[in-house]
Structures are given as C-alpha cells and as structure tokens.
C-alpha cells in the first residue's frame, strides 16, 4: 500500500514539477503552489475515473443493456461533458469564478471569529476512526446535495439549467456530467460554502466528490441493476436513479420529482420522495423545447440552455417556444 501511495505521489510530483510549477513560478502565482499541486491530483483521479468508466462500467452496459436499441449518436456529447469535467477543465473554470465568492464568505465568517465545528470535537471517538469520520462527512455532504437537487427542480430558473441534464433520451454512464457550466457553478458555490460551515476537510472533500461522482456515473448506466434488496436502500443504483430521469407522462406528470438522492437513498425515503417500483420508463423531458437539446453539440447546448435560463429569470425575453405551465412542476 505504501509503495502504491509513493508511486501515486511520485507521478503527481513529476506532473506538477514538469508542467504546473514552472507556469505558476513564471506568472508569480506562488500562493497557488500548494493548491496547484492538489489540482494535479484531481486530474489524476479524473483519469482513474474515466478508466473505471471505460473498462468497467461500459463493459457491464454492453453486456446487459436495458435499452438495447436507441440512438447512439446522442451519447457523444455526454462523453465530451465527462472528459471536460473529470479531467478538471470545467472544474477549473468553475473554481476560478467560484473561488473569490466562497473565499469572501469564508473570510467574512472567519473575521467574525466563527470557527467551523469539527464533528470530532463533539464525538472525540471519530478522531481515531478516519473511516467513520469520512462516512459522516460524506452523509452530511450528500444530504446537502439532495436539497440542492430538489431546488434545481423547484425553481423555474434553476430547472431551466438542470433540465439539460434531464433532456438526454439515451442515458448512459457518460450522462452524469452533462450539466450546464452555470449549473455546475451554482451547485459548487452552495456545496463548498456548506462544506466550510460543517468543517469538511479539503482532503475529505476531494474524496467525497470522487467517490460520489463515480457512484453517480454508475447510477446513470443503461442497465437494469441495483445494489440488491437491501443495498438499493443504502446506495443509489441505476434502477433507482433512472426513475428520476423518467419522461413525464399524462399519468405521471411529476415522476421525475422523485429519487433525488445523489448517493444515499435514505434522504428520499426520509422526505417521502422515494419510489421503488422497478418499472421501466423511457427517459428525457417531454417539453419539446427542452428535448431539442438532443442532437446539439456541447457549445450549442451551453448557449441555448443559457438562453433558456435568461428567459426563465426574465419572462419578458421569453419567446413563444417556452410555454408557461409546462414547466416547472410543483414539487
């Protein structure tokens, strides 16, 4: 294990000293020396995640597809999202915009003398149990992410962005990162501020993201699988999450307002939004204006969805294509 860690850090140090450190030094960004080093690890973890998706998850998808036929061409753009997101390109842009905001919040709160609570102070037992401590923070983070997700569905302007994620008719392991960059930004700001308040360590934060997002990639897979009778109540799997992406029909107009949980279904169970019926439903969004995302490229989606967001915020910019009443559903 130690050799493995040394190898990992060795690669990270080499990448950093070869590519990142000279750039930071040249542009006199030495206060970013340590964060830059950590960014290299995020990139490396992205490579690992993509490898797991390609070699592991895709194999299962090919072997046991739920929807055997469907337009494969729709998947291409999701691959672009996954690569831009996992290799840190989108996160870097998000970070550059979000950092001054979250830092301002952090420094303001610190100036007031507020010290983020560490659970370990309340439960000293956690000090000696890194795994338990990690799981507690993971659950807290997932809880916050659940409520952010509900807000994405609740507010029409936020749904205008988040509906891009739902518009995919051909859901696969690549679909998780299909988000508007502004949506990524909003979610990041809220969750980073939350993490600062409850005292999630930066290191835990990265691990929470990596593990969480990997499970979420899998929960979008084109398979009819779960983690078993009990497991499906503990961890979100493809069967559970597919229902969240279900196409609303005349009988089930709010079907996608269920199974919000990113990783832990307990939140849906507790707050009454869980459905375990195992039915197969087609995925996507019935609003034709949103369904039109399918077939668009990454830049085209970013532009048109931004337009959708602006019109949702300021209805006077609205064109006839967005019909009031079709969206958003009341929760």
């Amino acid at each position: 294990m130690r050799d493995l860690i040394d190898l990992w850090i060795g690669i990270q140090t080499w990448l950093f000293e070869t590519f990142v450190s000279p750039v930071l030094f040249h542009f006199n960004l030495m206060e970013w020396f340590e964060p830059g080093f950590n960014a290299v690890e995020i990139f490396m973890l992205g490579v690992v995640q993509i490898t797991i998706i390609v070699l592991g998850m895709r194999m299962l998808e090919r072997r046991w597809p739920l929807e055997a036929d469907g337009d494969e061409r729709l998947v291409g753009v999701d691959r672009v999202y996954t690569i831009l997101s996992k290799l840190g390109i989108v996160p870097l842009i998000v970070f550059i915009v979000a950092y001054p905001i979250t830092t301002q919040v952090e420094l303001l709160v610190r100036t007031w003398g507020f010290v983020p609570p560490r659970l370990e102070r309340l439960v000293p037992w956690l000090y000696d149990n890194a795994l338990a401590s990690f799981l507690v923070y993971f659950a807290l983070y997932d809880f916050a992410a659940y409520w952010v997700h509900r807000a994405q569905h609740r507010f029409s302007w936020w749904w205008a962005l988040h509906s891009l994620h739902h518009s995919q008719r051909r859901m696969t392991v690549w679909s998780d990162d299909r988000n508007h960059i502004l949506d990524d930004l909003l979610v990041t700001i809220v969750l980073v501020v939350f993490a600062q308040f409850v005292g999630v360590q930066p290191d835990d934060y990265i691990l929470i993201l990596v593990i969480g997002r990997l499970i979420e990639s899998w929960s979008h897979a084109n398979v009819d699988m779960s983690f078993g009778r009990i497991g499906q109540k503990l961890i979100v799997g493809p069967r559970f999450h597919r229902l969240h992406h279900a196409l609303a029909g005349p009988d089930e107009t709010h079907i996608h307002d269920h199974n919000f949980a990113p990783v832990l279904p307990i939140w849906d169970i507790l707050f009454g939004t869980a459905i375990y019926d195992g039915k197969h439903r087609p995925t996507g969004v019935s609003d034709p204006a949103i369904d039109a995302d399918n077939g668009r490229s990454w830049p085209a989606q970013q532009v048109t969805v931004f337009g959708r967001f602006v019109r949702a915020l300021a209805p006077r910019f609205s064109r006839s294509s967005v019909q009031p009443g079709l969206r958003p559903p009341a929760e």
């Binding site: 493995l4 860690i5 990992w8 000696d128 149990n129 890194a130 795994l131 290191d203 835990d204 990265i206």
Partner: peptide
C-alpha cells in the same frame, strides 16, 4: 488523500 485512509489517524502515541 489515499494515505489518510491507509494510515489512519494514528493511535495515541
């Protein structure tokens, strides 16, 4: 990061 899990926060020494 991986080390944190591997090593664990050492027992009181």
């Amino acid at each position: 990061m991986i080390a944190a899990l591997a090593v664990g926060m050492g027992a009181a020494t």
